[in-house]
Structure formats: structure tokens, C-alpha cells
Design a protein around this nucleic acid. Structure first.
Lengths: 117, 117
DNA sequence: CTACGATATCGACATCGGTCAATATACATC
DNA sequence: GATGTATATTGACCGATGTCGATATCGTAG
């Protein structure tokens, strides 16, 4: 399931009717639902801090074990938020040994940015 | 368009050119809460369609009476969503006669776009 | 195989949020 | 004034969501 991103192929993120833009044309119901689900992932302060921690980390990835403490939330809660970010396509997870390493998905963030054009 | 800011206007959630960016530096708790509140306004399909209807309308503004039917929701529900968009600073309201005219706030949308940089 | 540490899942709780019917408020017209 | 229309507010319902403790799963080390 984990797919290595190819630079030339056209992305096909899980979203069926991808995105659209607010100022382009009136959104269809399907586009609106897809976008709303994505923005909902950003509608929580813990997830925003989590995503910024991942996106700004040196090396571009962080171990889950390193984000629990700075967030001040319990380990299950952080795990839950990481799952939400993963399901929204904003981060990817990579298990190496005991640890889970998370990376941001800049293309997905750019998609949402494009929706606000 | 050149509107003199009236002291009794409804908008709030000041949010100057602050907010921060996901990829810039790790967000503070305050920044994350402010951003989360803003993104929460976009985390609903009805509000996204509503905002796109307003943003793409000819003349840049729409009467509230014209959006109830295309959204397929009750008038109180649409009024509620318009209030949320207003409180998030994404739209402004202008009462002329019986009708309320809503306009998008592109600077505010750009602010959120900047947070996804 | 057993034990331990890291992460995910489960169950329960409290709160938040979208929705509508009913009602209130504001404005224009008569 | 009274009446009709457009919009906002209220109150209630109910599903969604953030949170944590307890527990399960996975991978490594001994």
C-alpha cells in the first residue's frame, strides 16, 4: 500500500474528485466534502503543532516517540492525531525497527493551499 | 469597495499578519489554536460551498436569500454557517434594505494559504 | 521462548457541532 | 400604526470528536 512517489507520474491521492478552488468555480458537493475532510484534519491545535513539528524537523522526519512529550498529550491521544493526519494524506508513516518515523507530504499540503487560491 | 471601517462592525478574531507557517517553524500553542479555529470554519462542506458561491459570484457579493436554495439546507442552518464564516473573518456582511449581502475576504483566505506554505 | 519498550487499538466519558422547528428581530410598504 | 418579508436567534436533538486509562500488537534484545 505504501507507494513511493514518482516525480513524473500524475498524483492520484485517495480523493476521487480532487480539490477544486474556492475562487475558481462553485464547488460541487463531492469536492466540498473531500476538502472539508482535509481541512478538518487541520482544525485541531494539537494536529497543527504535530504537523509543524514534523514539517520543520531536521531531516524531514520525526520519531513518534519524540513528539509525545512536547505536545503535552498522552501517547494514545498523539497516536490518534497521527492517524488522522495520515488518513488525510498530510503525513506518511514508516516503521523502522521499533520506531515509527513520520514525514510530511508537501504535495498534499500544496493541494490544500491551491484550494484557497 | 473603499470602505471606511466602522467601529461597530461585526468582524473579530483580529489575527494580524501573524499566524505562522507550518513549514517555517514549530507553531506555538497560541498560533496553533488561532489557525485551528480558522481551519475549522473550512471543515464543513456546506460552508465551503457557501464560501465558493460567494467568492465566485458575479459582482463579488451575494444576497443571503439566494444561497439558501442551492445549498439545500434550512434558512437557520445557512444563517448559522454564514455567522461562522463571518466570525472566522472569511466573509463580511453588509445589510442593504431587507437583504444581507455577503462578500469574501481574499486577504483572510490568503492568510490561511500562507499558513500552508 | 520470555521479557521489555514503542506504538496502536479499545472502551468510556465529556464536549463540540450541524441540523431543524419555532420564535424573535429588523426593515419596507401600506 | 399593522402587515409581510428577510434574516438572526433560541432550544433541543444527536452524531462526531478529543481525551485518557487499560489493553493489545509488534519488534527487538536477552
Amino acid at each position: 500500500m505504501a507507494r513511493i512517489s514518482a516525480p513524473h507520474t500524475i498524483d492520484q491521492v485517495a480523493a476521487p474528485s480532487c480539490c477544486g478552488s474556492l475562487t475558481d468555480a462553485a464547488l460541487t458537493t463531492a469536492q466540498a466534502e473531500s476538502l472539508a475532510h482535509a481541512f478538518a484534519a487541520l482544525a485541531d491545535p494539537v494536529r497543527l503543532r504535530l504537523l509543524s513539528l514534523i514539517a520543520t524537523s531536521a531531516g524531514g522526519e520525526v520519531c513518534a516517540c519524540d513528539v509525545v512529550e512536547p505536545l503535552g498529550k498522552s501517547q494514545p491521544t498523539v497516536s490518534h492525531h497521527l492517524k488522522v493526519l495520515r488518513e488525510a494524506g498530510l503525513v506518511t508513516a514508516d516503521k523502522r525497527g521499533i520506531w515509527m518515523w513520520y514525514r510530511a507530504v508537501p504535495e498534499r499540503i500544496a493541494e490544500l493551499r491551491g484550494a484557497l487560491a
